[in-house]
Write a protein that binds this DNA or RNA. Structure first.
Lengths: 239, 239
DNA sequence: AAATTGCTTGCGGGAACCCGCAACATCTCT
DNA sequence: AGAGATGTTGCGGGTTCCCGCAAGCAATTT
């Protein structure tokens, strides 16, 4: 089996390669790329179907790279391996994973044993495996009705880009008032409230919503950058 | 010499320790902490005056840890060692470094040689040393008049927290209109413009400003969290 | 069939924001 | 001392935003 490691940190890369070689005897060759663009290229060249992918990388991040790899070879097995358990990454991945592909998500802080297990489960056995830490994150939101649905999340992204209500409405095919309703529930779920204590401080809701979404790790800067590209594309096919 | 390494990534930590031991013969003991709070504690215990400090850490980040270390022992020599060249970190550091302390800033992508050099220059020789990559960042802003001055940066933080003009004015001791002027120059410098091309899209300036500040790495999420704490303190002492 | 619940949409008004205009106050340069 | 250059402040008005209110529509319950 030929495995591609996409990881820009040299220490993590070599650790991964060591663990791979040691834990999976069926691995015959290990390729390496140090950013997303290079990773796509390598995957294409090598006819690779098993990938371990870092998420934060400079030129092109792991999610984008995974998207094109899956677009070209949907049966590829990809194990994501990241420092953070941001919900933003989960949404990004959930959005691009093909119908029945194998993938996994492990934190870099996981023990070597857990990494070995994930490597075997995803790359060899073709299972789906998500780190417990992360799964917890998904659930916790569900309890206090804090979880955003897709439509709210979309509006959040548009808001975060700075679009005015009118444009959001046009883009999402909703009426102005409906967009505003979405915003209201967003404010609610993100905890943008008029604290009964600090009655005095009334905040700018829009900015506050973006702020909260960031500090709760609902979105991150990379999400913003990706959303901006989508927006530009949409504006292009319209103006 | 006793050196403290504050770094939550185990690989980076052991790489640092190796390099330290090998490059600085005058090092007699190496202590290790894996987050800021622990780092402060260790520094206190060990009577440490030379520190290598990661910036992104969970419980308490490097800047905050450095602040308390310097508060307790201003002559401490601290080498910051980080993945990113965010302007936000530079400002954070510039804000807390005591009058004539030795410090340095090296990127994790720097070569081993450069790291060795920085270790010696800062920890042993007591020099100030900033990675070329980062220095470039500071300059580049200066050319096209993009650089924010301190007063603008303060207003940016308040804006990012969601404060309305009136409160910003009160907090910064400026008139309402002056705050708005600051905002105007902020919008200008951050590139929040009405693109003559896309005349159609008029954006929400405030949100857009925060968005731009984030993607240009002028501020980051940790900045936001720190600013929030400051704000809470200020609100507390006001009633 | 009627009632309940949930979502969308229009209307309207108060608040906040953006910003041109103009009057001053400082500081600098000649 | 006089002429700019730069920064602060008040005023006024056009926008956008926030959101209560109520009417309409669909799905589910009783």
């Amino acid at each position: 089996m030929r495995v591609l490691v996409v990881e820009d940190d040299q220490f993590h890369a070599s650790y991964l390669q060591d663990t791979l070689a040691e834990a999976l005897p069926e691995v015959t060759e290990i390729f390496h790329a140090s950013d997303g663009a290079e990773g796509e290229e390598e995957a294409r060249q090598g006819g690779i179907e098993a990938v371990v992918m870092d998420l934060q990388m400079d030129r092109r991040n792991g999610i984008e790279a995974a998207r094109t790899i899956w677009a070209e070879r949907p049966q590829s097995r990809i194990l994501f391996w990241s420092n953070y358990a941001d919900e933003a990454y989960l949404r990004g991945i959930a959005r691009i994973v093909p119908e029945d592909s194998a993938y996994g998500y492990v934190l870099k802080t996981a023990s070597r044993d857990r990494l070995r297990l994930a490597l075997r489960a995803v790359l060899v056995e073709g299972q789906i495996m998500v780190d417990r830490e992360i799964h917890r994150l998904q659930k916790q939101g569900a309890a206090p009705r804090n979880r955003l649905d897709d439509s709210e999340f979309g509006v959040l992204l548009d808001l975060a880009l700075g679009l005015p209500d009118k444009l959001i409405a046009e883009r999402r095919g909703m009426s102005l008032r409906t967009v505003q309703n979405r915003l209201l529930s967003l404010y609610d779920k993100l905890g943008v409230t008029v604290d009964p204590e600090d009655e005095a401080v009334s905040l700018n809701k829009r900015v506050r919503a973006l702020n909260r979404a960031l500090v709760t790790r609902t979105i991150n800067v990379e999400t913003l950058e990706a959303a901006q590209r989508d927006l530009d594309a949409w504006l292009g096919g319209r103006g």
